[in-house]
């Protein structure tokens, strides 16, 4: 919790130039409004305690998580790193209530969420969490704008959606413009590059003003340039919208820019 974001030294690595840019942007943002001490005082937004998860493969039970504990401060940027197959995605899914742990509890805003009813979990996912996936997972039948609007469609009933459509659309356009895709709103996902798709997915994750962004290797499927763009977008937005971000990555460079890095080895957190 002590290692908060803004005063982090610039590191020159593979993404050095971008880090620089990003941080300068973050700095201007800060000088314009928010104050660091507030952020530092942010309480724990999410926590996981003693989480166990194992998968069954026929007779064989494969334990993936063996007692994971973690705390996420509001407004922080947490990176979850670890080897491929170490259970990063599994942990993220458990935090996002997409799956239930075998043991242990997940708390969100001081409320246990892992054992809520499906309906309640769906509502939390829809309103509080913004999910970003490695393979973007946009709906191919919908345009970019519609894809961004999907969480709103899911949230609202038919008529309330129609009633609020104008406001939602405005917000969606705003977000798409923020991620630099204001000119491609009518396009279908298959007409865009991976980076553009992932930026659309970010806009989608942000449409319902979530408290937490849960991203599973958002750059994992992108080349350097596109990945950089995506990270830049994410960072900018994080600053602007005062977001808490939990990001799974195997990119050590990316993890270094995080406030906190959680390393998973053998089903437990080894470093904090």
């Amino acid at each position: 919790m002590s290692r908060s974001t803004i005063t982090k030294p610039v590191t020159i690595d593979s993404m050095g130039s971008m880090e620089l840019k990003k941080h300068s942007a973050g700095a201007t943002q800060l000088s314009a409004g928010a104050t660091p001490p507030l952020k530092l005082a942010m309480p724990t937004l999410m926590s996981a305690s003693n989480i166990h998860k194992s998968y069954r493969k026929g007779e064989l039970e494969v334990p993936v998580l063996k007692g994971v504990n973690l705390e996420i401060a509001a407004g922080s940027f947490t990176a979850i790193v670890g080897q491929s197959g170490s259970g990063k995605s599994t942990l993220l899914h458990l935090l996002a209530t997409l799956d239930a742990p075998d043991q242990g509890a997940v708390h969100f805003q001081d409320r246990r969420i892992d054992n809520l009813s499906p309906r309640q979990r769906e509502t939390i996912r829809n309103r509080q969490f913004g999910l970003i996936f490695q393979f973007y997972h946009l709906l191919p039948e919908l345009s970019m704008l519609e894809n961004v609007l999907v969480p709103k469609m899911v949230q609202d009933g038919f008529f309330s959606y129609l009633r609020n459509k104008r406001a939602y659309k405005k917000r969606a356009v705003e977000l798409l413009e923020m991620v630099g895709l204001g000119h491609r709103m009518a396009h279908r996902p298959n007409e865009l590059s991976g980076g553009e798709m992932q930026r659309t997915a970010i806009a989608r994750a942000l449409i319902s003003n979530p408290s937490v962004i849960l991203a599973d290797e958002p750059t994992g499927n992108l080349d350097e340039e596109n990945g950089g763009e995506v990270m830049e977008t994410l960072d900018n937005l994080r600053e602007q919208e005062n977001l808490t971000v939990i990001m799974v990555t195997h990119d050590v460079g990316l993890a270094k820019s995080a406030d906190k890095t959680i390393r998973l080895v053998g089903g437990v957190v080894v470093s904090d």
């Binding site: 996936f133 997972h137 899911v154």
Partner: peptide, 13 residues
């Protein structure tokens, strides 16, 4: 996958 996405985004079964 689309079904998974919808569910992840909070769509009920």
């Amino acid at each position: 996958k689309d079904i998974g996405v919808l569910k992840a985004l909070g769509a009920p079964s």
